[in-house]
Computed example of a mutant assay.
Amino acid sequence: MCGRIANTLPRDAMAGLFDAKPANRLPEVPNYNICPTTDIAVVFGNETGRNLVSMRWGFLPHWYKAMNDGPLLINARAETIAEKPAFRAACRTRRCLIPVTGFYEWKKDAEGKRWPHYFSGEGPLALAGIWQDWQQEGEVTRSCAIVTTSANDTMAPVHHRMPVIISEADWPLWLGEAGHGAARLMGPAPEGVLLRRAVHPRVNSNRASGSELIEPFDAP
């Protein structure tokens, strides 16, 4: 799964990188400890072009009566996304990109203690996502989930799943700008895309903040 991300990209830089029109209200950056149910920056396309907007991280199916009416859907498995009632329409017509500078995953030691690791790239990463508008009492909440797939060799020693990472050349296809065939993009990232390092367990707290969260740490 992917349950914690970091984004240090300035809003103007994100808009320029994705050639997207930025919304007036976007999440504050930098944020080294972004947790589910908070708002994150997301790129999606429509008839006017690409847009950089804020969305709730935690996909809300249209049948939910309240935000906590069912499981917290922060991830969507690539292998079943086209079949799951919550995701199948979104994966066809409402795909998005989620800009991050990195994400965290935890590895258990022999005693069951979880040690965090930080995964990043040579530059910003674009994670595959899907989104949905959820309406309650006339108010609309735009929500999203990160698409995950099986781990590559870099990720596998820490966790068996990883987010789908979309290369810049494939952004148009994932966003639906370049026709059909986005399903082929939902595999593990090629080796060499990700860098991995152990980081301090202070990131285990969802209240932790600051750049020290991504500093290397000598885990046992």
Rank of each mutant, 00 (worst) to 15 (best):
K65H: 07
P99K: 14
M67D: 07
M55E: 11
W131V: 10
W134H: 12
R92H: 08
E137C: 04
L125Y: 02
W106F: 15
L73P: 13
F119Y: 11
I130Q: 13
P27F: 01
K84R: 15
P99G: 04
L26P: 03
A90E: 13
A110N: 14
H117L: 00
R92Q: 15
A82R: 15
C91E: 13
R95D: 00
A90V: 04
V100A: 10
F119A: 00
D133G: 14
E83T: 13
C35W: 11
P61F: 09
V43D: 02
S54F: 03
F119P: 02
A66G: 12
F59E: 06
T38F: 02
C91M: 14
W134P: 06
R95F: 01
G121E: 06
S120R: 12
E111T: 15
N33S: 05
G70A: 14
I130F: 11
G49S: 09
E137Q: 14
V29D: 02
Y64R: 01
P116S: 09
H62T: 08
I98W: 06
F44C: 12
K65V: 01
K113R: 15
R56P: 10
E105N: 05
W134Q: 11
L125D: 01
A110Y: 09
G45W: 07
D39W: 00
C96Q: 07
R92K: 11
W131K: 12
T101K: 05
A78V: 05
A78I: 05
R114K: 14
L97H: 07
A86T: 12
L52V: 01
A126F: 03
